[in-house]
Simulated assay, not measured.
Amino acid sequence: MTKPVVDLTIVGSIGIDTIETPTEKQEEILGGSVSYACAAASFFSHTGMVGVVGTDFPQEFRDTWSNMSIDLEGLQTVEGKTFRWGGAYHENMDNRDTLFTDLGVFESFSPELPEDYKEAPYLFLGNIHPALQLHVLEQTRDPKFVLIDTMDLWINIAKDDLAKVISRCNMLTLNESEAQLYTGEHSLTQAAKLLLELGPEYVLIKKGGNGSMLFTKQDIFLLHAYPLDTFKDPTGAGDTFAGGLMGALAASGKTDKKAIREAMVYGSIVASFGVEEFSLERLKQLDRDEIEIRVAEFKEMCRI
């Protein structure tokens, strides 16, 4: 049987998390940017995972990915301990405190792409050091569309490397505080203008429960968040959104503005399911029909 072609490569962190919310605590659960992003993308495209775990990594977590038909050829297993992170959310569930960070094998991670992944037309550079993102980009063979994510840490300590890799990507995504930090502008429209000058065609600013904003040099697209009855754990919501977006975009085979806006809707809806449970628990039970039903509901809510 011929192995399916990987049409989307996703690179990022893999972690074992301990999460505390105002009402619940979950220990030793599957986390990391690439876990959430690949899970979300898997509903739409054949996705290749690039990350690293230690020899302590549970088989049940690998099985979770395999059951989602995520390609694991790019997953490295290294002697040592898997990256671990702990976080506690405030009452509003928007802000959180980091309780501990144990980098483990992630500290020396050097992403290497299998041959199949180098040919993938779509690439999502998840939140890792910009020098590593650039290392990945240099292994690819002319991808059609590249999305890069980042965080405040890299803006503070590796801004030159970050600017270099952003200039070679089609879209930059970051949250509103990161956009303000990078540019020194409080206004998101002004921040987006400065970020677009770095070279990407699109800047996507995530606003958590308030949706997202897509900027080009010509226009702005605003997307609401889907209103939820159940909201348990916001961890990984941004990665789920970006992964769903890139999966849907890869499935479309397109890169135009209309296709990106449509893909944003799918990313937002998959993320809305993800936060209903901890870790990937809700995404493990999700199917494409449920996604399509909620997408239709959402579009009706937004219709004028």
Rank of each mutant, 00 (worst) to 15 (best):
L174W: 00
E176S: 13
I155Y: 07
A179N: 05
A179L: 04
L147H: 09
D149R: 07
N156Y: 07
K159S: 04
L162Q: 06
I155D: 07
M151D: 11
D160L: 13
N170H: 13
L181P: 00
L181T: 10
S177A: 11
V165L: 04
G184C: 08
V146Q: 06
V136I: 08
K164R: 15
H186C: 01
Q190S: 14
N156P: 04
L172E: 03
R168T: 05
I148M: 12
E138A: 05
M151P: 12
Q180K: 05
H186A: 06
K144E: 07
F145T: 12
S167N: 09
E138M: 10
M151R: 12
E138F: 00
A191L: 08
V136L: 03
K159C: 00
V136S: 09
P143C: 12
L172P: 06
T183Y: 02
H135D: 13
H135T: 11
L162C: 07
V136R: 03
Q139R: 14
L137M: 15
C169W: 06
W154L: 11
D149K: 13
K144Q: 15
S177D: 04
L181G: 00
E178Q: 05
S167H: 01
H135Y: 11
L153T: 13
I166W: 02
E138L: 07
N170G: 14
V146N: 04
Y182V: 02
I157L: 12
N156Q: 15
K144L: 15
L174V: 11
T183I: 01
L162K: 01
I166K: 02
L188Y: 10
M171Q: 04
L162P: 00
V165Y: 04
M151L: 14
D142R: 11
P143W: 05
K164Y: 06
R141P: 02
T150P: 12
L174C: 15
E176H: 13
M171V: 06
T189K: 11
I155A: 13
E178R: 02
V136M: 01
S187L: 05
E185R: 15
Q139E: 08
P143Q: 10
G184K: 05
L188I: 11
V165I: 14
I148T: 14
A179E: 02
Y182C: 03
I157K: 15
H135G: 11
K159R: 15
A158R: 09
Q180W: 02
I155M: 08
P143D: 10
A191H: 00
D149S: 15
E178T: 00
R141M: 09
K159N: 03
L188S: 10
N175I: 01
D152I: 06
